[in-house]
């Protein structure tokens, strides 16, 4: 496994882990967003190990403002992440994209795409807003999703521990993975429950095997 840095269009260097033995195909893996990204990180890397074992190179770059990134998350936008993932695809010479959940919203469209259980921005936002309302209620505070959203659009919002800027909130409301030519791997094809639903980060070797196997079918 390699770790290193890659240059983003905005001038920062971001962290990457990957498996590079100069093989083709070369897959850019676009991680899930926000808390789903943290929950699925181990599982994502395990899926990449299986691609490596099957003879495929893959790369998992940080989205600027996430994981090891030094940039503030509240300044990031989906547009910026899209540009960053396109730059990463070029930097690593990717031939294909495997996007996970909300990663499909920022996956570079110029390469063949495989989307695993793609999620709309609206549904990610809905779950985070609801979590915030429930947490506030536990603390004896009344908030509504509508009021939070309105505030988020004008001044940004801290949701589930993630600082979202106003542009990010507005983009999430609209963003849908729908209009691409991507091949979709649905959770029903994989079997079991989606690991992004888990309360704690989790890994499932059977599901990782299955996703790698289904992805391999679309890489050759």
């Amino acid at each position: 496994m390699l770790t290193g840095l890659w240059p983003t269009p905005s001038g920062s260097d971001e962290y990457v882990i990957g498996f590079d033995a100069g093989r083709a195909p070369r897959v850019l893996v676009v991680r899930a967003l926000f808390d789903e990204g943290s929950k699925l990180r181990h599982f994502t890397v395990e899926t990449m190990r299986r691609l490596d074992a099957a003879g495929v190179d893959s790369f998992l770059p940080d989205l600027p403002g996430t994981n090891e990134s030094l940039l503030p998350l509240e300044q990031q936008t989906l547009d910026g992440w899209r540009a960053a993932m396109r730059a990463a695809a070029n930097h690593f010479g990717a031939t294909h994209v495997l996007a996970i959940r909300g990663g499909a919203l920022v996956a570079p469209g110029h390469l063949p795409n495989i989307h695993y259980a793609p999620a709309s921005g609206a549904s990610l936002l809905r779950a985070m807003l609801r979590a915030q309302v429930i947490a506030a209620r536990e603390a004896g505070e009344a908030q509504s999703r509508e009021d939070l959203l309105e505030r988020g659009r004008s001044e940004g919002l801290r949701l589930a521990g993630y600082n979202l800027g106003p542009d990010m909130v507005a983009e999430l409301e609209q963003a849908s993975p729908g209009e691409s030519d991507a091949v979709e791997i649905a959770q029903g094809d994989v079997g079991g429950g989606g690991l992004w639903l888990r309360a704690e980060p989790a890994h499932d070797p059977v599901q990782a095997d299955r996703i790698a196997e289904l992805a391999m079918g679309h890489l050759r």
């Binding site: 985070m128 609801r130 309360a199």
Partner: peptide, 10 residues
Amino acid sequence: DSMAVAGLLT
């Protein structure tokens, strides 16, 4: 926790 409950309800 609240995030898990939100995911559950959604």
